[in-house]
Every structure is written in structure tokens, then in C-alpha cells.
Amino acid sequence: MAYDFLDIKLIVNGEQVSARVPARMHLVDFLRMELELTGSHLGCEHGICGACSVRVDGVVVRGCLVLAAQCDGSDVLTIEGLSESKEVVDLQNTFVERNAMQCGFCTPGMLMTAAELLAKNDKMARNEIREFMSGNFCRCTGYHAIIDAIEITMEARREEERS
């Protein structure tokens, strides 16, 4: 029948996790409150700002628009796991060097989205990068530096590929 609480088992950042969650709890509240993975942020909880972006079963999603209960059996990756995996360490370093963030609240979501961009593309025009990133709100930077950082990283990866 229908449940108020659900027992879920999932992989989070490579680790097996079991938990009992309220049906209404969205994924990011679960990650933040139950697993203390506070790198995923809540900026609106209605699916616009992208601060809560996490990877579920290989693709980036709005963590506030997925229920924790729905992730039973899923493979979830947060900024903490992405960082440990070194998948986008080059992008992260470039973000720091290029000062592609200020307050940093949007940054984990930006990186989760940009990670998918880099995984899917090796060459994009600047406006295409802007379009791909257009679901993540940054109030501080005006985006220019973020787009620079992604462009620089993509170019560096291409260079590396060539050599």
C-alpha cells in the first residue's frame, strides 16, 4: 500500500546507504539533513535556481524535484563525491583561478551541470555554453567568469587530447 515512510537503499558518492525517509522528503533535504552532505544547496525549492543540482543515475537533476523515496536503488553523486572522484578537478581549479564564483552558493550546482556539459561535449561555442548553463542561477558573477572557466577547461582538455 501507500507509505508515509519508506525504507530506501541507494549508493551515495560510491557508498551504500540505507535509510528510512518520510515520503515527502526531497532528495536534497535527505542528503543535507540525513547524510550531512551540505554541499548541495537549496536556493528556491521550486526547480528554477539549480543550486541543488545533483547527479542521479548518471545525469544531472534538480535535487529538490526528486523525492528521496524515488531514489531507492539509485546511484547518487553530490559535489562531495564529484570532488573526490577528481572527474572535474581541472574545472574546479579553473573556477578558483578564474574567480568563477563569489559567494559560492551556486557553485556546486554549477559544477554538477558543467560536469555533464564536459562529459557530453568537447567543443562548444561560447553561446552554446551559456545556453547549456542557463538553468543555473548565479547572483554574484554575472556569468562571464563561469563561462570563461568552462571554455578554458574544455579547450585544455582538447589540447590534452591532441597531444
Partner: peptide, 11 residues
């Protein structure tokens, strides 16, 4: 910034 990119900001 080094903390923020790793999700280690503490708000």
C-alpha cells in the same frame, strides 16, 4: 573559493 568548489563552504 577553494572550499566552495568542493562543496565545503559552510553556510
Amino acid at each position: 573559493a577553494k572550499r566552495a568548489v568542493n562543496g565545503r563552504g559552510r553556510y
